[in-house]
């Protein structure tokens, strides 16, 4: 069992954070995770993004496990 969560970042977030992956200690749910991320990476407050867990956008508090695939997604700009 790993005790960290790996979070993938995309688009302009890779410029803002200087990395496509963040590692943070595991949290119980997505609300705790956001609280931790905004504290550890205050630059995240400067841009808009949504969160996905296991490749689905989440809108509500979601339980996380060590295997959860978490990503921070800035506004999409395909096409």
């Amino acid at each position: 069992m790993t005790d960290t969560l790996t979070i993938r970042c995309f688009g302009q977030l890779t410029d803002i954070l200087g990395s496509a992956r963040l590692e943070v200690p595991i949290t119980n749910d997505s609300e705790e995770l956001m609280h931790l991320l905004l504290k550890e990476y205050p630059l995240l407050k400067t841009t808009r993004f949504i969160v996905s867990v296991d490749r689905k956008v989440i809108r509500e508090k979601t339980v996380l496990t060590p295997g959860s695939e978490i990503a921070l997604l800035p506004p999409f700009s395909g096409g």
Partner: peptide, 20 residues
């Protein structure tokens, strides 16, 4: 709806992220 991002590149090696 698709998680795709476009980085607009200009001649002087600058860039900005595309906004739909």
């Amino acid at each position: 709806e698709l998680p795709i991002w476009g980085k607009e590149i200009t001649g002087s090696a600058n860039h900005q992220w595309k906004i739909n």
